[in-house]
Simulated assay, not measured.
Amino acid sequence: MEQQTEEINASAVAMNEMTATLEEVAANTQQSADGSRLATEAVNGGTSKVEQS
């Protein structure tokens, strides 16, 4: 019974670590998406200025 408890605890710790990693990946993905959006907006703004001149 003690071994089962240890294995369950180890599994719970592993799941918590995986959850934290996934949350970090999700945050990084969001930051990348935001950066891409800002870059696209900057390019579009520059294109408009070139077309106007």
Rank of each mutant, 00 (worst) to 15 (best):
E2G: 07
A14T: 04
N44I: 06
S11I: 04
E17A: 09
S53L: 11
G35L: 09
E23M: 04
M18W: 07
M15C: 05
M1D: 01
S36P: 01
A14C: 02
I8R: 10
E7F: 03
A10H: 09
M15Y: 14
V13W: 03
A42L: 11
V25G: 06
A10K: 10
G35S: 12
M15S: 10
G35M: 10
A33F: 10
A12E: 06
E7Y: 04
E2Q: 13
N28K: 14
E6N: 05
Q52H: 06
M15N: 09
R37T: 08
E2R: 08
A27C: 03
G45Y: 13
G46H: 12
E6C: 01
L38V: 12
V25L: 15
N44R: 13
E51R: 12
S48N: 06
E6P: 02
E41K: 09
E17I: 04
T29Q: 13
E51G: 03
T5A: 15
A14L: 07
D34C: 04
M18E: 11
L38C: 05
E24L: 11
A39E: 13
A42N: 07
G45C: 06
Q3L: 08
E17W: 01
V25H: 15
Q31L: 11
S48K: 11
A42Q: 05
N9I: 08
N16E: 14
A10D: 05
E51N: 13
A42M: 12
T5Q: 14
K49G: 00
N16Y: 13
T5I: 11
T21R: 15
L22T: 00
A10Q: 10
G35E: 13
M15I: 09
D34S: 07
E24W: 03
V13S: 07
G46P: 00
S48W: 06
A14M: 11
Q3A: 07
M1K: 01
V13E: 10
G45P: 01
E7G: 01
G46F: 15
Q52K: 05
S48D: 07
L38H: 08
A26F: 05
A27L: 04
L38S: 12
A20N: 08
T19S: 05
A26M: 07
L22I: 02
T19Q: 04
L22H: 09
A14G: 04
L22C: 05
N28V: 04
A14N: 07
T19H: 03
Q3V: 00
E41A: 15
T29W: 03
E7A: 02
Q3G: 00
Q30P: 03
L22P: 02
A14P: 00
E7C: 04
T40E: 13
N9T: 04
N9R: 14
T21L: 14
T47C: 09
Q52P: 01
G46T: 02
T29F: 12
M18C: 06
Q31H: 06
A27D: 04
G45A: 13
N16P: 00
G35N: 15
S53R: 06
L38Q: 15
Q30M: 09
E41Y: 07
T47L: 13
S32W: 11
S11A: 10
Q31N: 12
